[in-house]
Simulated scan of single mutants.
Amino acid sequence: MKKLWMACALLLPASLYAQTATLVPPANISYAGLEKNLFFYANTRCKVTQTGSNQLDLNKLFDGRYDPSYTSAPSESDPTVITIEGFQAQHTQRLAYIGWTTRYWAPVHFKIEGYDMSGPGWVTLAEVTNHAAGEFIKDIASIPGLYGLFRFTFYTGSGPQGQLGISELFYLNGEAAQAYDGLMVRYDAANNVTMGSKLRPSNLNVNGQVNTNRVKVTQDSWADFVFDPAYTLPSLPTVEKFIQDNQHLPNIPSAKEVTDKGLDLGDISARLLQKIEELTLYMIEQHKKIETLTKENQAMGEKIQQLQNERSTR
């Protein structure tokens, strides 16, 4: 039965609900917009819990794609309840919206609550019955508070048997959005992203530590030219003289250059590989010389032993 009504949902006309939330202007002409959704990926960066027998796909509710999630019919006695917590609370004194959007089977009876950290506790921001639109947007600036938790309770849906569909949950706060942009992340139309700094020298600028499992750098050239027979390996006396004059290896940036300009990871990796390959050639050359000297010493030892044996027989 569940597969049947899910299939029916996909066959419903796309115009059933507009799902554009046009009441909220873009953030570039307002203090808040849907692109400033503070719930964006809340299921991975905040704490999201869900209760009720009929549950929605949390991954779809916060990914910004507006791809609907459907569930069997909730009820007044067994509602679907989603609680979001763990993000930085900001006052809703100037401009703030909260709501949801969907494509099919919108909630008919629902309630949205916020937990005011400044004292009152849970505050009902909206409770609606007999709702008939495919979206709900509530300006909660008239209900000022320092909200650190939000709770969405869906009692009934508009599906054929009361099923529920939700595409996205959103919370837009002009004051929080401005602080988020100014202190943490900035981005512009040129695809530049800046974290922790107002400087934008490159497409991604991070003022702080970056933790990652792996970094892949694409290079147009690599240092294997060292092994080309036409490559001239610098002599060790030449390298020694350069080090004495400059206090760093040839073709490697100095400490001052790194301090002033930083490092290109791909470029410095290629340069360091070049030095490793040159060292390898030096070692091979030294190994050949050592082998030659070893053989010469062995031959000389045998000659000395032969002369000693001849003298002892006289």
Rank of each mutant, 00 (worst) to 15 (best):
V185R: 08
G33V: 01
A299F: 04
E257C: 00
A18P: 00
F225R: 04
E296M: 11
H248V: 04
Y104V: 04
E113D: 12
F110S: 08
R186N: 13
G86L: 03
L58R: 07
A133H: 13
Y231I: 07
Y17K: 01
L146E: 04
I284F: 02
M117Y: 09
V108G: 02
S30F: 02
K36W: 09
Y97G: 06
Q298G: 10
L11F: 01
R311K: 05
S118D: 15
V185I: 13
D260K: 02
P229T: 02
T101P: 03
E85N: 02
K289W: 03
I98D: 10
I82T: 08
K111P: 02
D78H: 05
A177M: 08
A126R: 11
K303W: 10
K288E: 15
F39D: 14
Q161W: 03
E113V: 11
L38R: 08
Y17A: 12
I137K: 08
Y17V: 00
G196Y: 03
L272T: 06
I29L: 07
E257H: 06
K275D: 07
I112T: 04
A177L: 09
S197Q: 11
Y282G: 09
G121E: 09
Y97T: 10
G86A: 04
K3P: 07
D188F: 01
S77K: 12
G99D: 06
T292R: 08
A179D: 15
L4F: 06
Q219M: 13
Q306F: 03
G119K: 04
Q93G: 13
P237A: 07
E35F: 02
V206Y: 03
I98M: 07
E277Y: 15
M1E: 15
A32P: 03
D220G: 14
G119R: 03
N211K: 15
I29Q: 10
T22E: 15
Q19N: 15
L199H: 10
R94A: 13
L236C: 01
L272D: 00
A96L: 12
Q55K: 14
G33Y: 05
E285C: 01
F242M: 02
P13F: 10
G119E: 06
L38V: 00
L95P: 00
G121V: 05
A106M: 01
D63I: 03
P144C: 11
Q244Y: 08
W105K: 02
K275H: 14
L169V: 11
N43V: 08
N37Q: 07
Q274S: 05
